[in-house]
Design a protein around this nucleic acid. Sequence first.
RNA 1: GUGGAUGUAGCUCAGUUGGUUAGAGCGCUAGUUUGUGGCACUAGAGGCCGUGGGUUCGAGUCCCAUCUUCCACC
Length: 377
Amino acid sequence: MSKPAITYELLHIDKNSGARRGVVHTPHGDIQTPVFMPVGTQATVKSMTPEELKEEVGAQIILSNTYHLYLRPGHELVKEAGGLHNFMKWDRPILTDCGGFQVFSLSDLRTITEEGVEFKSHLDGSRHMFTPEKVMEIEEALGADIIMSFDECCPYPSTYEYTKNSMERTTRWAIRCKEAHKNVDKQGLFGIIQGGFYEDLRKKSAEDLIALDFPGYAIGGISVGEPKEEYLKMLHYTAPLMPENKPRYLMGVGTPDYLIEAALSGIDMCDCVLPTRIARNGTAMTWNGKVVVRNATYEKDWGPLDPECDCYTCKNYTRAYIRHLVKTNEILGIRLLSIHNLRFLTKLMERVRIEIENDNLLEFKKEFYKKYGYTKE
RNA sequence: GUGGAUGUAGCUCAGUUGGUUAGAGCGCUAGUUUGUGGCACUAGAGGCCGUGGGUUCGAGUCCCAUCUUCCACC
């Protein structure tokens, strides 16, 4: 029997919180966890070169997307290029999202059946069909280290009945994904726990998926616009249900507070478009809170974006200059803010890992919240 | 000098045969952004309609004067 592509090594558990410090081993190297993963939907983290991601940001792993790459340039083309790593010149680990989220959020017309989802492309309206088998074919062609099983992400709020049916179908699709997935020594297939905001459904989903013995597990369907209390409630309920000897991935998170809460709950991996998206709209995250550098307050601010940051942007440019770039819609503004925001979250997680090793993550959370300006726990 | 045109939001301009609270685009101000449809979305501020008179129940709109800017001609 061949060695699985993805394995998890636990290094330390924070004695005061249960947060875990570990390593995820992949075919393209190790990932120190907890980790934040930048999102590169279309085989690029928008405006960043791989060198910048590695040297300036310190990214260990990035995400890409099945739905988008299937539509453009096509997974066959990426395969012909030698897979995503080769195509985009990124030699560290990659995770591909299954496209389930996009099928539901981007397509006008979609029909869900037991077989799969029929949808219309947001690009040209052409009709396509995603089945668990099709998604596995695409993700294998893309060649990421970690691939996600095809799921349905329920909108918030959804009724109990709808969520239950959706969750059960997601589990059946996970079985089909597992059966269709062949190169298990090169790619690790993660199962996605659904169940919306209903505890018994989350429990059922977790149990059924764990029985299938995936090399890793994700929590999906959270961080979809619910209040923070709901987020924390489901996070605190679901994370402990996940196996201790495998990576735990919380999809679509997020903001600094959500990331710290995730780590505190024993989550190992998170991803989010937020740092790069808000960068494109003139906003930065700093150790002293959110800075909308586009605002007039910064017109003549000759200081760096974040005095405590060690990134390329903060070492070299003033808020006034970055504001000017944002206001004039210059590409460099987007790039500088993207570098900073990604570096900020990467650094935050580096700090989280150190605090876990020192059994001090809870204390750190208090300090961070106070400084960042979060008022509610 | 003569003739013609022009003047409405910071900018470029719409404003019917006179009729409620004068609009648009851009800009400006602020908010939003959570498994990405990059340059978006939402909200807001901002006008003695060049000035002075007149007609009218009522004038950005009609009349007179005057000033501004532009064009043509002498």
